[in-house]
Amino acid sequence: MVLLENDSFLTELTRLFQKCRTSGSVVITLKKYDGRTKPVPRKGHTETFEPADNKCLIRASEGKKKISTVVSTKEVIKFQMGGLAF
């Protein structure tokens, strides 16, 4: 899984769509993301992590190639304009 910047993600995504022209499919997953990079601590361990509530994670895959990006509030409009237009 390669985590990309928003712009390069869109470029790569276009490439994935080109790749699936003859066979295969592109899968895009959208999920809310709180910025967590470590697992939830077990019981008895204190947690210093503060969830952010303004991010979302987008993953895309075609065959074996997988890419992902994190989009936050201020970038979301730009991101929608630039991509996900089929």
Binding site: C20, V27, K32
Partner: peptide, 13 residues
């Protein structure tokens, strides 16, 4: 909201 994911699957062929 934290649990839900949205999946799009596109098959060009």
């Amino acid at each position: 909201p934290m649990k839900v994911r949205v999946v799009l699957k596109y098959r060009h062929c």
